Simulated scan of single mutants.
Amino acid sequence: MPTVYRVAAVQAEPVWLDADATVEKTIGLIEEAAAQDVALVAFPETWIPGYPLFLWLGPVAGQMPYIARYHANSPAVGSEHITAIRQAARRTGVTVALGYSEKDHGSLYMAQTLIGPDGSVILHRRKLKPTHVERSLFGESDGSHLKVVDTPLGRLGALNCWEHLQPLNKYAMYAQHEQVHIAAWPAFGLYKGIAYALGADANMAVTQTYALEGGCYVIAPTQLISERGIDTFATTDEQRALLATGAGSARIYGPDGSLLGKPLDEHAEGLIVADIDLTLIDLAKNAADPVGHYARTDATRLLHDNRPKTPVVHPGATTEPHFPELDDPDAEAPTD
């Protein structure tokens, strides 16, 4: 297992409500990462087909036309869209952390899929609790989706957006000795200057805190918004006033909380790239390991129920999250 390698956080605008075009852009960014010798590239929350900004811009009745398009452009885990990205990962040898709106029959979930350099699916998870108005569009998952996995690049895990504001979620991840964490975020151009909690400063602060608390590397990709994005979702001057262009804030943090790589201008698309060294995690945790020598189990402990919960229970069924679309041997290593 390499202890030193290069990672990248995507800062870019999706092709709003267009899965085909966003997948094409995704593959281009994976190829760009490969050209820079990146071993792991991370994409933002709901990168495909873009974060549903329409949820925050008006009454439910006005959202209906967007919801139909959003469902139609949300890929299933076994879809041709995800397969094409898996093939790109295999072709380039890059590990890909992909965020997207996952369609599972009539329901949508805020999903993250970790794809290995051979095209295999290493981890598939869903956001435990969609935030605020997101709950009108997306379903929830359960404790089985708080999971860190062993990979050739170390122990990797992922969370979406305000899952990083849930202290117990974070501690459940820290306790699995995560080494590299994907903190996927949308764009921060929503209610900019109006709601500080939705802005880049507050949310990058909790992302940096995750690195420091967990003693791990954190890769934080973000979306950004252009005039094209505003035109997609805003139909009135009042709605346009709630959206701001730019607001990209992709970052990479070290296990001591230090900023790694060179941030891009908030309006610029591209990759934040940094070299990481997993051996430095030991130095960080020597000072403070919140799930090891710095814990106080006599005072506080976390109950993490990692059993999957389903609407129908079949006696004797597996205790692991199961996605039949990923069972096909061809799907484990897709061909070009």
Rank of each mutant, 00 (worst) to 15 (best):
P65D: 07
P263D: 05
N160E: 07
Y196C: 12
A284M: 07
T236L: 02
E163N: 11
H105A: 14
P334C: 04
A202I: 06
E178G: 14
H314W: 15
D142V: 05
L98M: 12
L114A: 05
R91P: 08
L271Q: 01
A84P: 06
Y171E: 05
F323Q: 08
Q208C: 08
L280N: 02
W56M: 11
T131V: 08
G106H: 09
Y210C: 06
M204Y: 08
L212T: 12
D104H: 06
E32I: 02
T279N: 12
T310W: 15
G154A: 11
L259Q: 13
T113G: 09
L98G: 01
H322V: 09
G199E: 14
A8L: 02
G257A: 06
P49A: 11
K147V: 13
D275F: 00
P44S: 04
I67V: 13
T222W: 05
Q179P: 09
A33Y: 01
T83N: 11
S101A: 15
A195Y: 11
I272N: 03
L153Q: 00
Y100P: 04
D18V: 06
G229W: 03
P152V: 05
I48V: 14
F138L: 02
I272K: 02
G157F: 01
P308Q: 11
L302F: 15
Q239N: 10
N160S: 14
D277A: 03
Y174A: 13
H177N: 14
D37K: 01
G292W: 04
P308K: 10
T297H: 07
D142S: 09
V180Y: 00
A274R: 00
H267K: 06
L108R: 04
I27Y: 03
A295Q: 10
P308R: 10
I182D: 01
S258G: 10
L57V: 03
D237V: 06
T83W: 13
A333Q: 15
A88E: 00
K285N: 09
L114Q: 02
T151P: 01
S74I: 09
G50C: 07
Q166D: 15
I225A: 15
D201G: 12
D305R: 12
I276P: 01
A287N: 11
E24S: 08
R69G: 05
G189C: 03
I48Q: 10
D265K: 12
C161Y: 11
F54Y: 08
L224D: 04
A39V: 00
W47P: 01
A39M: 04
Y210T: 10
A317S: 13
P186F: 02
I219M: 04
Q112E: 14
A241T: 12
D256W: 10
Q112T: 13
K170D: 07
G214L: 00
L190I: 09
Q87W: 09
S74A: 15
P321H: 06
E227K: 14
V4H: 05
D142L: 07
A111Y: 04
T46Y: 15
A184R: 02
V41S: 01
T22S: 14
A274F: 00
Y100G: 05
A241F: 08
P255N: 07
D327F: 07
V77L: 13
Y253E: 02
Q87V: 14
